[in-house]
Every structure is written in structure tokens, then in C-alpha cells.
Write a protein that binds this DNA or RNA. Structure first.
Lengths: 108, 108
DNA sequence: GAGACAAACCTAGCGCTTCAAGGCATAGAT
DNA sequence: ATCTATGCCTTGAAGCGCTAGGTTTGTCTC
């Protein structure tokens, strides 16, 4: 985990979260995570698209081809009901594990 | 990431942190993480020992055979100077990335 | 003493995730 | 016509954690 990277295991949660307000296209997901994190996080395309494929297979998102604001053929991703449930579940898991980590880190 | 698991990428940091106060043996590291985390984290032996091997190779810890309080042959692990530096570095990385994650999760 | 159990160490192999490094297509600008 | 940025995708390698085994040895029970 070097300078500008992800915490393994959290990429799915971040993507789902960014999709929550409404459908956006793949490329924009990475940009949105980048800016929302104040440039602290950087999602590589080689991580992004495979992750989206996995989510499609699991039924957490649906994809649809369309045209972007910049007049380009893009693929819009949208949360499914199951995806919404999955997001909640991942948030709970993350919060619990994070609490465990912080307990150890502070009171070791 | 199911019920009682680790966040990938944080195991090394947790082990280094638990070793910080002083040398303890491998098996006790897992127990200590378990109890310090209030049973929220569970380190499997199949994760623990390979992780310790990696740290030995990188020179972050040193190992020494000895006898435990329960009169058993055990391997005590001890932080090296480099391990202390590594711990600080991992803490900084983790804090920065965590801040990024929380920014995204709250303000998406 | 025999057997059972838990402490404590370890390894092999699988599966998953991330990343680096490429390739492809097209809209808009020069 | 060429270039640049946008946008999608795949392949291969590397790393990590887990499952599922196995070994040794101290302690306790009968």
C-alpha cells in the first residue's frame, strides 16, 4: 500500500456508495472517488472494470449503454435493490472491523 | 469479508502494533489481537504464520526460541528498528486512506 | 501408564483482489 | 489529417488470507 492507493477489500463498497445517488458511467466513478476523497484515493482502470464485472455477475448493479454529457458512448451503472442491501451490509462489516482495528491500534 | 474477519492489508500493521510493547510468541499474537479487538477480529493461524515469515524476511521482526509461561517451547517475536519504522509508515498510510474512504462514504 | 486434549508451530494449495501494461474506438480541436 | 482526451476493456502477474491438513509436547484424567 504505497502512496495513492486503495485499501484492499473496500473498492466494492466505495463503488456501490458512489452509485447510490444515481446512475453514472464507469469512468466517472473513478473520477468521483478521486475528487470526493480529496485526491487521497485513486482507482486504477485495471481495478475498476473487473470490479464492475463482478458486481454485474452478482446482480448488485445493472448496466446500460448511453450517451454522456460529453456526447460519448458510455456505460451507465445503476444500483439494484440487491446492490442497495449489499452496500448496507458492507458498511456494517467495515464499521465493525474498523472498530476492531482501532481498538487494537489504540490499546495495544 | 464475512462475520469475524480481517480487513485485507491490515494484518501486518496489527501484528507490528501488538509487538510494539515487547516480544511475545506467535500464538499469543493472535489471542492478543482477538481480545484487544473485543472479539471483533480473528486471526487464523494460516494467516498468522505466513505473515510472520514475510516480516522475518523483510527484517521487520526477529525470532527467538524460548519457553512460555505455560512451560512450552515457543517462538518469541521482537520488533526490529526497521520494524518500528515500518509500523509508523503503515499507520500513516492507513490513516490517510481511511480518511479518503470516510470522505467518500459520507459525502457521496 | 494410556488416552485425551489443548497449546503451539508449520505448510500446501486455492481463490480472490489489485495493479501494471497494454489495446481499441471516437469526439473535438488544430 | 493528426492529435489528444475520453472511455471501455483484457491479460498476466503478484500478493494476501483462508481452508485444511499435519506435527510436537505439556498437562490432566482414569
Amino acid at each position: 500500500m504505497a502512496k495513492n492507493e486503495m485499501l484492499p477489500g473496500t473498492l466494492g463498497m466505495l463503488i456501490l456508495r458512489v452509485l447510490q445517488p444515481g446512475p453514472i458511467h464507469g469512468y466517472a466513478i473513478a473520477q468521483r472517488i478521486h475528487t470526493l476523497s480529496k485526491e487521497l484515493l485513486q482507482v486504477e482502470e485495471g481495478s475498476l472494470y473487473p470490479a464492475l464485472q463482478r458486481m454485474l455477475l452478482k446482480g448488485w448493479v445493472k448496466a446500460e449503454w448511453g450517451i454522456s454529457e460529453t456526447n460519448r458512448k458510455v456505460r451507465f451503472y445503476k444500483l439494484t435493490a440487491e446492490g442497495r442491501r449489499q452496500l448496507q451490509s458492507e458498511i456494517e462489516d467495515f464499521d465493525r472491523v474498523l472498530q476492531g482495528i482501532q481498538s487494537v491500534m489504540s490499546k495495544a
